[in-house]
Each structure stands twice: as structure tokens, then as C-alpha cells.
């Protein structure tokens, strides 16, 4: 799941190195515009609804956190 997600997001956003940090949001690598675009990609690709309470920095700070969130929402 993690590798698949990394491939998908890296293709969609080639300018971002998703493995550069474990605090992508807190370090300012991902801003609100990018997060919105990521949410759109994840929702469309995996057919999930990401409720607003899931949109917290902890769920987007690393590729592992994003993969965990997608798996949780697909369950």
C-alpha cells in the first residue's frame, strides 16, 4: 500500500519529495493547496470519503501516515 501510494502521489506531484521528511505538514513541504489536491487524488483513486475530522497534520505528515489513513477509511 505504502509503495503504491508513494508512486501515485509522486507521479501526480513530481515537485514534492514525499520521503524527505516525517513532518511534511509541520515542515511546510505540504501547504493547504497541496493537501486539498492530495485529498482529491486519494478520494478519486481509492473511492473513499475523507471526513473533515481526518484532515489533521498527523494524517499527512508522512507517506506512512497517509497510507494508514487510506487503509483505515477503506476498512
Amino acid at each position: 500500500m505504502r509503495d503504491e501510494l508513494l508512486r501515485l502521489l509522486s507521479t501526480e506531484n513530481p515537485e514534492i519529495d514525499f520521503t524527505a521528511s516525517d513532518e511534511l505538514v509541520d515542515d511546510g513541504v505540504l501547504d493547504s493547496l497541496t493537501i486539498v489536491s492530495l485529498i482529491g487524488t486519494l478520494s478519486m483513486e481509492y473511492g473513499i470519503d475523507i471526513p473533515y475530522e481526518e484532515i489533521v497534520p498527523e494524517n499527512f505528515n508522512s507517506i506512512d501516515a497517509m497510507a494508514a489513513m487510506v487503509e483505515r477509511l477503506r476498512a
Binding site: S32, I35, V36, I39, G40, S43, M44, D49, I50, Y52, I55
Partner: peptide, 22 residues
């Protein structure tokens, strides 16, 4: 950003719309 932009940007209707547009 927190109470208008993000909720609108991730709302179901907008996600449906952008899926159609994509």
C-alpha cells in the same frame, strides 16, 4: 482556511464534481 476553504475543498459535492471533470 480552516472553516471555509478546507471544508469546501474536501466536500463530497466538490470531489464528485472534480472526478467528473477529470
Amino acid at each position: 482556511k480552516d472553516y471555509v476553504y478546507m471544508p469546501v475543498a474536501v466536500s463530497k459535492w466538490l470531489i464528485k464534481l472534480i472526478t467528473k471533470i477529470r
